[in-house]
């Protein structure tokens, strides 16, 4: 059987990759995708801990499902915002969306 820590390592790596994407990509849609990666990293951890520590309850899986829901909601609203901004400014580069400053 695979030890728990290996799943955690995969989760950590996926999370770190997501962090990098969120911080470094210019395209806002790519940022959204990176956020999805981070959410997935969280889900891996939830399910892994559930499987190894409390397989008799359903809490881990239930939480993973709620994370799904939040991910869908976030993607829907995020993309809608991006599309709206694109329509107005012909750009989806996050660095261009800097009206709200000093």
């Amino acid at each position: 059987m695979i030890p728990l820590w290996m799943f955690l390592v995969v989760g950590a790596a996926l999370f770190a990759i997501g962090v990098f994407g969120v911080l470094a990509r210019r395209n806002a849609i790519a940022i959204l995708m990176s956020i999805e990666l981070m959410l997935n990293a969280v889900n891996i951890n939830l399910v892994a801990f559930w499987r190894y520590l409390t397989p008799e309850t359903m809490s881990g899986q239930a939480f993973a499902i709620f994370v799904f829901v939040v991910a869908v909601a976030e993607a829907a609203v995020g993309l809608a915002l991006i599309v709206a901004i694109y329509r107005r400014r012909q750009s989806v580069v996050a660095e261009d969306m800097n009206v709200l400053k000093w």
């Binding site: 470094a24 395209n27 849609i29 991006i82």
Partner: peptide, 27 residues
Amino acid sequence: LIIFGVMLTRGMVQARQVMNSQWDLAA
């Protein structure tokens, strides 16, 4: 959904510059 988003904002698909200016710090 994301692919739809990509297609709705076409023109941005092939960017000249992929990373922003703080990518090194981000890494």
